[in-house]
Design a protein around this nucleic acid. Sequence first.
DNA 1: AACGCGGGGAC
DNA 2: GTCCCAGCGTT
Length: 350
Amino acid sequence: MTLAAQLLDWYYKNARDLPWRKDTDAYKIWVSEIMLQQTRVEAVKGYYKRWMERFPTPEILAQASEQEVLHYWQGLGYYSRARNLLTGVKEVCAVYNGKVPADEAVIQSLPGVGEYTAGAIASIAYNRPAPAIDGNVLRIFSRLFCLREDIARQTTKREVRRLVQRHIPGQCPGDFNQALMDLGAAVCIPLRPRCQLCPLTNLCKAYELDIQDTLPVRAPKKQPLLVVLAAGLILYNGHYLVRQRPETGLLAGMWEFPAVELTDEQAAASELKETLWQECRQQVNVGTRQYHYIHTFSHRKWDIAFYECQWLSGEALPERTAWLSADELSTVPWAGPHHKVAVALAVRET
DNA sequence: AACGCGGGGAC
DNA sequence: GTCCCAGCGTT
């Protein structure tokens, strides 16, 4: 038996029942693959179902606003995925008549679609024998063939790609690729792989040498930078002062309560008061601290405190700034921990 | 090649 | 607490 045959036998007995495996519509595969980038299956399921109820076709998604799309993505992370998906779907509607292209290179030309995602869509939706090298595949093949190089290196990825290319079956490449995902998720897991359950142990060099726990090799990542923030909760005439983050960078386009980065945590009140005047043109007195969160991103750690403020006076609001009623707080996409506060304030109002 | 970009589940 | 996930785009 070949590697593919052994793997597929296992897959057809153990495949997960996932919402995006009901059919092979290329748009649905596309959406699922984007949502699954750096994101676990369990986290995606609910978002995928809600998305497909609201945006069942490329044409419907293409007509949606970026704000609504971000709202549906709120909490899933990596929000450029949502904007790129919207941009890409518009391109598919305008250039490809609403039909996702079948050629791998053309698929990869869409924004947000890289080598992995293009291979996944081409193989699953169009039965093309394209490799789809993700973290699972890198881990599985580094163990199967005892690759001791850092899997983040380009040379390692090229080597894995060559190996996958050699083993991918012409008949059902999509099943083969998805089988690797399921194997990586359930059996060939990062820590303490469950080799007793694995259909490929007879081919696995790491298993033969009993070094599966030492693979794959991955360079350690540095710890996130601490950022201390103070945010203002300004309630005036039944409305809260909020603003939209810049179009680029962290949490781009998401909404937040006006905040300032602190160099001196003791100066929170004065810094916040100054920022609210400079950036929002509102005069306030900073009151007591109401909420406090530690929120860790991949490369930043926010220590953010929310202060109740007393509104005194103000000029016209700058761009990307607004007064929102408690009811309206649930209508915008929120930036990270600001969402928790928005929910708490909306509840408090009722 | 290195970095920016989120959030949460498993241990 | 740590790890890392069905990665991509920019620099």
